[in-house]
Design a binder for these strands. Sequence first.
DNA 1: ACTGGTTGAGTGGATGAGCCACTGGGCCAC
DNA 2: GTGGCCCAGTGGCTCATCCACTCAACCAGT
Lengths: 228, 228
Amino acid sequence: MEALPRETIVDVLEGRLREDILAGRHPAGSYLPPERRLADGYGVTRTTLKHAFGRLVQAGLLETRHGVGTRVRDFTRLGGADLLPMLVRHSPDWFGEIFEVRRGVGALIAERAAARATGGQQDELRELLDAVRTAEGGDAAQLADIEVHRALARATGNRVYVLLTNTLFNAYLPVRAALVRPFTDPAAAHARLEPVVAAVLAGDGGAARRAAEAYLTATERIMLEGLA
Amino acid sequence: MEALPRETIVDVLEGRLREDILAGRHPAGSYLPPERRLADGYGVTRTTLKHAFGRLVQAGLLETRHGVGTRVRDFTRLGGADLLPMLVRHSPDWFGEIFEVRRGVGALIAERAAARATGGQQDELRELLDAVRTAEGGDAAQLADIEVHRALARATGNRVYVLLTNTLFNAYLPVRAALVRPFTDPAAAHARLEPVVAAVLAGDGGAARRAAEAYLTATERIMLEGLA
DNA sequence: ACTGGTTGAGTGGATGAGCCACTGGGCCAC
DNA sequence: GTGGCCCAGTGGCTCATCCACTCAACCAGT
């Protein structure tokens, strides 16, 4: 099991700052208070605050200018998809939109994979699909399911699809993990996924696209029901 | 003009570390030397090194464990699309793959936008397209062109498409900016873009998808030629 | 009045010494 | 053997201090 360590001070601080920004307490375009004052306000050293700032700058939420100050970026306009995990954590409204995109992109990936998968990649897909069926206990089936999707992305021969899949996974996987119930049955997971892989292996792009759309629509419905 | 300040020490250090990682001098899964030793090696303070580490951790390239060490993550397997800018800077191989995805996603966006754009969004599209035609000097036409694409993404009513568009822009825009020649002519830019907007305004999803594909294929060809 | 250089307050950037907290392996008593 | 303890090595965090940059106000000199 993944033994994640206790949250560090920087973690907590980053979370508070992010919350304050996403909640609009520091509006986009406005300057934050000076580091010394802010650090004092949060009861931490300026160095520690700077570490938290560094992360948020990297994430695209903040923008610092030497000698001037630190400003909140207009991330809804300029931000990248890597913001999704924190956005969805702050407000679950994003979930539906994420899944619509996942459906569109997933269909693209299936279609491309059907057209391009190499022999080795086809073998890998067969193996990983089989691993879903024989998965045992807890979230093993769910993890195996994810691996199939990663392999489908790889089978497009386009590494950007792999990264994109990871980005979308990072955004909605925590939510999906919370809904363990519908995803822990290996037989059901295998049955849902099998038509997609079969179409890809058959090299039928149209069928693969439709199968992927069906799969993603089905899992989306399960998740949206689970959230309600 | 955007007067970007001189690179800070942390910037440089981050670049060197990233380069060392992407070049495989620190293989995925391996542990980096201890912070004290590494900081000494790069001739900087441990604090400074930690700031650079913080960014790379946030970016998904590194993973630190208190009391154990700092490890290089297998970003080709687990990384998100936000890595693209640094990956493409390190090796331009990525460019073709990025553009293929941009084409697929752009077509999806155009189709959705045609089906869903509200009246206000249609007006905005008309205005922004017009701004491309009347753009003057330097890269003004190129910037106006980008704004049209952002507006198309917004017109889908799905904010994730906006973020995704930004992510892909961040990845290939620096390259595109280097090829100013084909993109500085307002009339040409307007002519390329007009059919896409027209189809979206007409509410014809299929036509919008095909127009977007044609546009993206054309600009892709221009860029690939420029690179060669 | 206008121009142009100077200054100073306020901001973020970087340092280095020092201490705390965590991990893991090896040692020792049982 | 087995269990517990210890300690060396690692990253986390703080503090005090200085450097570098920006901007606006000021003040000559014209």
